[in-house]
Design a binder for these strands. Structure first.
Length: 577
RNA sequence: CGGUGAUUAGCGCAGCUUGGUAGCGCACUUGGUUUGGGUCCAAGGGGUCGCAAGUUCGAAUCUUGCAUCACCGACCA
């Protein structure tokens, strides 16, 4: 434990800083409550100062993460936030990372970056420090501020530019060993979120451009989440919709019954327009999207057509994995569209196209469908694959939707929102190769290491916990991360010597036993004190008043359940045993 | 990056249409009052109205530019 907890706390010596009114700039509930309860203050877009109460929570999350990482066998280190640019050139990310990477120069005009992540630094470190396979496997982690120059910071602490992250990296000679550590980390993550008291789910995730074989995200379930998670209603299956496979329909494609007919569709530009104009079911229409393909040897960029059922949405990640399509995904410009199909975007269809056509599995199952005619203000009805368009490839290129069969084979898909608070993946050799990270193996040969990488958004967890645990009075902290375990709330202490004596005595006892207590010794009316402590979410309130002192009792109020009960003063400590 | 909106006291807002000595509520200070759920009364302190230029005798108010903050979008076929 690296953080020394300060137990002694009186409100008269404490920066309470609660707000009665919600600042106008706060949109989501966690942001509002973090401002109102005095956890954070905004400095600039996406930059926050942590006040005492917020910092206590942040440190508690941090400590749970630290303990479980240590238990999983990882060593803690601390790397600089400012990193030399040449490391990023070595890995290739100086060019690849884009504008999220904040670049700066020092006084000698040497280029640096503000670290959005630390793969380069740690891989370089390990490349320098390790020589032999005998030193493997090795896991290292740090808890560090990261900076990502987000296009649009939003939702307060949930998507800020500077944020606290735990990032861990493991190094191995063999894939098999990496898989073992990966599983260990997976288990450690589950223990972390269990201990934090959050409702979370590990979900299958896309490995992104980094590649690698396995990846899981850990999501805290909350309606305000930014990610869609696909669950099976009949099994443990859970996957990010980016990743969830949309299965091909089980049924055979129906035989054509209609003839191909061109119909005039003036001013019909979108699928919605089309459905309204022709009064057809959206599920009998297809949309055709033109995107840029991979540049060929002549330096030309071919255009590729993607065909989806009208009601389905394109999954960019799946498309980027296709060999014909350029990554990152780029839609064809108006000029490119005109050059290929001689019509506007709203009238494109697969019939008669002489470019690569990739059809989603569901769209490929349609018969007698409606599509663009590749002529302005014209569409085709009664279109059928094979008969009217025979050269195409079928692939999974859409997002799953609620009700789809689950790819695990059991049940149907349900979609919920999640806040991504953790991400683990098997990196492979990408960075180790680029940074020359290798050791001598048993045969005395140089062997490049394979890596795993494991992140947790520490500050984001604080916001996610609030999103999941609040009511109209304020925050309801899970016990493990509450800033204080108990608040002493004396009624009219200024006038009653008995109340003051009792409150002071209990405060002293809590301090001796090491229970984090906030003693409200302000000269405030009871309502003000109650409101502040409920806003801050302290799990237990100890209310001391003349009313119950004759019977040597105090009142205990549970913030989570709302239950109130009377307790003999002598029994108060038993609440915490 | 595109669109929209905002910027006046620590916070929440009014004033701007129709230019003429900057206001309200909360918070803060002082005195009194009250004391088991955000008391009440009284007296105070606090603002170069985001910045810059322009119009005008005179600008929070009109014009132009800039900055900052926020929201929506970045899937259009």
């Amino acid at each position: 434990m690296y953080f020394t907890e300060i137990l002694v706390m009186r409100t008269s010596q404490y920066l309470l800083s609660t707000l009665k009114e919600t600042p106008a700039s706060a949109e989501v509930i966690s942001h509002q409550l973090m401002l109102r309860a005095g956890l954070v203050r905004n400095l600039a877009s996406g930059l926050y100062t942590w006040l005492p109460t917020g910092l206590r929570v942040l440190k508690k999350v941090e400590n749970i993460v630290r303990e479980e990482m240590q238990r999983a066998g990882a060593n803690e280190i601390l790397m600089p936030m400012v990193q030399p640019a040449d490391l990023w050139e070595e890995s290739g990310r100086w060019n690849d990372y884009g504008p999220e990477l904040l670049r700066l120069n020092d006084r000698h005009k040497r280029p640096f970056v503000l670290g959005p992540t630390h793969e380069e630094v740690i891989t370089k470190l390990v490349a320098n420090e390790l020589n032999s396979y005998k030193q493997l496997p090795l896991s290292l982690f740090q808890i560090q501020n990261k900076f990502r120059d987000e296009i649009r910071p939003r939702f307060g602490i949930m998507r800020s530019r500077e944020f606290l992250m735990k990032d861990a990296y493991s190094f191995h000679l063999e894939q098999e060993c990496l898989e073992k550590t990966y599983q260990k980390m997976f288990d450690a993550y589950c223990r972390i979120f269990d201990r934090l008291g959050l409702n979370y789910r590990p979900v299958l995730a896309d490995t992104g451009s980094i590649g690698g074989d396995a990846s899981h995200e850990f999501h805290v379930l909350a309606d305000s989440g930014e990610d869609d998670i696909a669950f099976s209603d009949a099994s443990d299956f859970a996957a990010n919709v980016e990743k969830a496979e949309a299965l091909a329909p089980q049924t055979e494609r129906a035989e054509p019954t209609q003839t191909l007919t061109k119909v005039a569709t003036p001013n019909v530009k979108s699928i919605d327009d089309l459905v309204n104009f022709l009064a057809v079911d959206i599920k009998t229409t297809v949309k055709t999207l033109l995107v840029c393909g991979i540049e060929n040897e002549q330096g030309e960029t071919p255009i590729v057509a993607l065909v989806l059922r009208g009601d389905h949405q394109l999954n960019e990640i799946k498309v980027e994995h296709l060999s014909q399509v350029a990554s990152p995904l780029t839609f064809a410009s108006e000029e490119q569209i005109l050059a290929v199909v001689h019509c506007n975007a709203g009238s494109i269809g697969p019939v008669g196209l002489s470019i690569d056509i990739i059809v989603d599995r569901s769209a490929a199952q349609l018969s007698d469908f409606v599509c663009g005619a590749n002529e302005n203000d014209q569409h085709l009805t009664g279109t059928n694959w094979q008969r009217d368009c025979s050269t195409y490839q079928v692939a999974d290129i859409r997002n799953v939707v609620a009700g789809d069969p689950s790819p695990c084979g059991q049940g149907n898909i349900v979609i919920k929102r999640g806040i991504e608070v953790g991400h683990i993946f098997q990196l492979g050799t990408k960075y180790a190769e680029a940074m020359g990270c290798a050791v001598l193996n048993e045969g005395g040969k140089n062997q490049t290491l394979t890596m795993g990488c494991y992140g947790i958004g520490v500050s984001r967890i604080v916001a996610a916990a609030i999103e999941q645990n609040h009511d109209k009075y304020g925050i309801k902290w899970p016990k493990a991360i509450a800033p204080f375990q108990v608040a002493i709330v004396p009624m009219n202490m200024a006038k009653s010597a008995r109340v003051k004596e009792t409150a002071e005595a209990l405060y002293e006892q809590f301090n001796q036993v090491g229970i984090e207590v906030l003693f409200d010794d302000r000269k405030e009316r009871p309502g003000v004190m109650f409101a502040d402590h409920e806003l801050m979410g302290t799990p237990l309130l100890l209310i001391i008043g003349e009313r119950n002192l004759d019977a040597q009792q105090v009142e205990v109020k549970n913030r989570i359940t709302g239950e109130k009960s009377l307790l003999a003063i002598d029994d108060v400590m038993s609440l915490f045993s």
